[in-house]
Structure formats: structure tokens, C-alpha cells
């Protein structure tokens, strides 16, 4: 029994370390990028420094929120009681840390990219800073969505009662749930950042088109996020379907494989669709009259890029349902 307590406590500390360790990567890269672009832009037009520095700080504060979510999960992990009698809780703590930490990487980078280009845009069009800041705030806040899904899964793992789940597929279920959303959130976070980044540049280039640009950015981002939602759905499916106890390794590894499939399968489509949306948004601001054809091409391109994510989702569902 003492051994179990030691194991769960060690797992709490490992989970806490992974949550904030991975979670800090993205936010730091994003904030550094934003500050770098702000410096570069200020060299063109130093007299706008007040506006640019204010915007840089606001953008960095938003990029930081993914790391703040990771910090919450770390602190909860460090200070919650390790008195559980079950070795399964060790896997739950590690998985909560992984899901929060990994999912925060993409969101931090994405929000930082957006903030950087907004600083550049303000230097280009100082008179239009309010609509640039508004596009940046909406765009970078939506970049946080994948990290929020990761936080929701981590909170569910930590606060739901899993004491009736058998250990033997249970450890794979927990780890799979954490990895599914954690990995799947990396791509969409970066992809949404690419779309929002070009949208802020576009609004700065041609402020008249801001309504159109924002609208296409939102549509593009919501499709780019769909693989994060697949990962989220697979995590919830793993957590909320009942699994029979079986000591064979195949059943456990099948469920872990489902999580890995949805997780890794979500990285590529997220980034790719983000790049598609970025292209569409960029050119809509330059040729507004072609919005219709650009939107249509964007949707078709995204549907094709999405297909690999859907294959991963189908394999994950097969592994959960059939095995």
C-alpha cells in the first residue's frame, strides 16, 4: 500500500512537471516572436512606439494564457492529496499533465504569431489600430481553443471518479485520452495562428475589407480546429465508455493506439488547413471582389487536407469500437 502512495505521488510530480514544462514551450516562442516583430517594426516608424508596445503587451498576455492554464493544472497536481488506493491514479496524473502540456504548445505559438503581425500592421497603418487590435484579439483568443480542450480533459481526468475502472485496460484508456487531445491540439493551434496572422496583416493592408477578412478567418479557423475536436471527441469516448477488464496486452494497447492515432493524425491537418486559410485570408484583403471564389477554393482545399485527419479518426474509432 505504501508503494502505491509513493507511485501516485511520484506521478503527480511528473505530471505537474510535464504540464508546465511542455506548456511553457509554445507561449515562450510566441511571445518572443511577437516582441521581435514589434522591435523590427519600430525601426521603421519609432514614433508609434506607444501603440506598438501596448499592443505587444496585450498580445503577449493572450499568448501567455495557455501557459497559465498549464500552471493551474500543475498546481492542482502538486497540491492534491495522493492518498488514493489505486495505482490507476498514477496514470491519470501523468495523462492530465501530458494533455494540458502538449495542447498548450500550438496555442502559444499561434497567439504569438498573431500578436507579432498585429504590431507590424499598426506600424503600417497607425490610424487603423483599433480594428487591427480587434482582429488580433478575436484571432488569438480563438487560437487558445485547442489548449482549452486540453485543459477540460485534464480537469475531467483529475476530478471525475475513476475508482471503478479496472487497471488493465484502464491505464491505456487514461494515457490514450491524454495523448489524443494533447497531440491533436498542437497542429490546430499553430494553424489557427497562421490564419489569424494573415488576417491581421490583411486588415492592416486594406482596412475596408475588415468585415470580409474577419469572417473568412473565423470560418477557416473553425475548420482548422476540427482535428482538435476529433481528438477531444476520442478523449471523451475513451473516458466515458466502459471497458471490460482484460489482462491481455492487446486490448490495452489497442485503446492506447486509438489515442495515438487521433493525436498524431490531428497535427498535420491542423497546420495544413491553417496555411490554406492563411492564403485565402491574405488574398481576400487584396482582391475583395473575388471573395466568393477564394472562399470556395479554400473550402475544397481544406476538405482534401482534412481527409487524412478523418482517416486517423476512423482508425481510432475502429480501435475503440471493434476491439
Amino acid at each position: 500500500m505504501l508503494e502505491t502512495v509513493h507511485f501516485t505521488q511520484a506521478a503527480q510530480y511528473i505530471g505537474a512537471g510535464m504540464a508546465i514544462g511542455f506548456g511553457a514551450i509554445g507561449a515562450a516562442i510566441g511571445e518572443g516572436y511577437a516582441a521581435g516583430i514589434a522591435n523590427e517594426s519600430l525601426s521603421y516608424r519609432p514614433e508609434t512606439s506607444g501603440d506598438v508596445i501596448r499592443n505587444m503587451l496585450v498580445g503577449q498576455a493572450i499568448a501567455e494564457s495557455a501557459a497559465i492554464f498549464s500552471l493551474i493544472i500543475s498546481i492542482i497536481l502538486i497540491f492534491s492529496e495522493p492518498s488514493q488506493q489505486f495505482i490507476l491514479f498514477a496514470w491519470i496524473y501523468i495523462s492530465a499533465g501530458l494533455s494540458m502540456g502538449l495542447s498548450a504548445i500550438g496555442s502559444g505559438i499561434g497567439a504569438g504569431l498573431t500578436a507579432g503581425n498585429a504590431c507590424h500592421g499598426i506600424v503600417r497603418q497607425p490610424g487603423n489600430s483599433s480594428s487591427i487590435i480587434r482582429t488580433m484579439l478575436i484571432g488569438s483568443a480563438l487560437c487558445q481553443d485547442p489548449a482549452i480542450f486540453g485543459m477540460v480533459v485534464a480537469i475531467l481526468l483529475l476530478f471525475l471518479d475513476f475508482s471503478s475502472v479496472p487497471l488493465y485496460p484502464g491505464w491505456a484508456v487514461m494515457l490514450g485520452a491524454g495523448l489524443a487531445i494533447g497531440l491533436a491540439a498542437i497542429g490546430p493551434g499553430i494553424g489557427c495562428g497562421l490564419a489569424a496572422m494573415e488576417a491581421t496583416s490583411g486588415v492592416a493592408r486594406n482596412p475596408v475589407t475588415s468585415t470580409n477578412t474577419n469572417r473568412i478567418m473565423l470560418i477557416g479557423m473553425s475548420i482548422a480546429q476540427s482535428t482538435a475536436i476529433y481528438g477531444f471527441v476520442i478523449s471523451l469516448l475513451l473516458l466515458f465508455t466502459s471497458h471490460e477488464e482484460s489482462v491481455t496486452l492487446t486490448a490495452s494497447l489497442g485503446l492506447l493506439g486509438a489515442g495515438l492515432s487521433a493525436g498524431f493524425g490531428g497535427i498535420g491537418p491542423g497546420i495544413g488547413e491553417g496555411a490554406t486559410a492563411a492564403g485565402a485570408v491574405k488574398w481576400i484583403s487584396r482582391s475583395r471582389e473575388n471573395t466568393g471564389i477564394l472562399t470556395r477554393t479554400m473550402l475544397v482545399g481544406m476538405a482534401v487536407a482534412e481527409s487524412t485527419g478523418i482517416y486517423a479518426l476512423i482508425v481510432a474509432l475502429l480501435l475503440i469500437v471493434v476491439l
Binding site: 493551474i72 481553443d145 485543459m151 475536436i229
Partner: peptide, 28 residues
């Protein structure tokens, strides 16, 4: 089904974003 889940995910993300930021600030 995915569109419906996407709509519901908006509620989750908008409310957890505010909660996470304010709670995170309080914890720090």
C-alpha cells in the same frame, strides 16, 4: 454530427477561457 459538436465546443471554449484566465491569475 461534427458541426453540432463544433457548436457545442464553442460554449466550452468561451467559458473555460474566461474561467481559466481568472482562476489562473488568482492561483498565481
Amino acid at each position: 454530427p461534427l458541426n453540432i459538436i463544433g457548436e457545442l465546443a464553442k460554449v466550452v471554449s468561451i467559458s473555460f477561457r474566461l474561467y481559466g484566465n481568472i482562476m489562473g491569475g488568482a492561483i498565481i
